[in-house]
């Protein structure tokens, strides 16, 4: 059983790793990044893409090599070598995936935490008490985030996503069930209420009392989106923000983000919600701060625009 010499194997391995890294860092598969969360996501993506490329090329290369090198020659009816196993080898290739998976897990946990994901989502009243403490824990300006979970772990001792107080249709409960980066709610955030229904997103700016079919936000300022669905489950997804959160009837969810790049990006419903699901789209327009003020004052009905200050209590 001829095995390539150690040197050739080593060189091939190094070439493979370099090729994987090159592909991971040079092949762009993602749309433009427009939120503070997106570059963090893209860093994770590049790492996963590199590892994946290395593993895939390595395994497929090994397979193709075997198929050519060990093909049955014409007229050769003998068997191959009677090798039934090799414990050291098997330990090695149990260890390799275990180490890779462990590394990926720890790294993505780190990413997740940097995005604010491990910050517990509190009961909304509780969130007030400690939102400032939670908010600036990591990156004050860019605490947009990913994934905090439902219900609080520390503050409210309620069963996760389980048996909540029953919530009538038109009476949103004060309790927030789930959200992304919900715990990193901070001073100066712009609060917006989102109501999703078949087949539209309706945005309400409580401070300015604006109702809009499009989401308008300023750059570099945190937006706290409080979401609830009126009929079936929808999902709020902005691919350029790399953020998605289901919008659930009876269970308000939160999504915090900070836009970083002016422009108009699609808002896509990502949960099958009925026949016109594919058409349930809207836009998020990211403005320079001055343009946003102009948009606010232009659209505010009666009272002058009071740009959202600290308090983001959505009382719907």
């Amino acid at each position: 059983m001829p095995i390539p010499s150690a040197l050739i194997t080593l060189l091939l391995g190094m070439a493979l790793v370099l090729a994987g890294l090159w592909v991971g860092y040079n092949v762009s598969l993602l749309p433009v990044d427009a939120s503070s969360n997106a570059p963090v996501y893209d860093a994770l993506f590049r790492v996963l893409f590199s590892i994946g490329t290395i593993l895939f090329i390595g395994i497929v290369g090994l397979l193709l090599f075997s198929l050519v090198r060990f093909r049955r020659r014409e007229g050769d009816l003998a068997d191959g070598a009677a090798i039934e196993g090799n414990l050291p080898l098997e330990i090695v290739w149990t260890a390799i995936p275990a180490v890779v998976v462990l590394f990926v897990g720890i790294y993505s946990y780190d990413i997740y935490e940097r995005m604010g994901g491990m910050t517990p989502l509190n009961d909304h009243s509780a969130m007030h008490a400690n939102h400032s403490a939670l908010g600036s824990a990591e990156q004050p300006g860019t605490a947009a985030a990913i994934q905090a979970g439902s219900v609080s772990i520390q503050a409210a001792a309620v069963a996760p996503t389980g048996d909540g107080p029953s919530t009538g249709d038109g009476k949103p409960p004060s309790r927030v069930w789930a959200g992304i980066g919900a715990g990193s709610d901070q001073q100066g955030a712009l609060s917006v209420d989102l109501t999703a229904m078949q087949f539209a997103f309706i945005f309400h700016y409580p401070q300015a009392n604006i109702i809009s079919g499009e989401l308008h936000v300023p750059i570099d300022r945190q937006v706290a989106l409080r979401m609830e669905a009126r009929d079936v489950i929808h999902a709020f997804w902005v691919p350029q923000f790399r953020l998605k959160q289901d919008v659930i009837p009876g269970q308000p969810t939160l999504l915090n983000f900070t836009a970083t790049r002016p422009g108009t990006y699609p808002i896509v419903c990502a949960e099958l919600c009925g026949p016109y699901h594919g058409g349930m789209r809207s836009s998020v327009v990211v403005h320079e701060p001055a343009d946003f003020e102009a948009w606010l004052s232009k659209n505010t009905p009666a009272p002058p625009p009071t740009v959202a200050s600290s308090n983001s209590t959505p009382t719907a």
Binding site: A98, V100, V101, V104, S108, Y109, G117, M118, G149, W177
Partner: peptide, 27 residues
């Protein structure tokens, strides 16, 4: 259900458990 509203500890647990299926599968 990572976007459906699950608490952080649950996400962490299911991430780890799912990732580790790669080990026996890799074997």
């Amino acid at each position: 259900m990572f976007t459906s509203g699950t608490p952080p500890w649950m996400r962490l647990f299911f991430t780890i458990a799912t990732s580790f299926i790669a080990v026996p599968t890799g074997i």
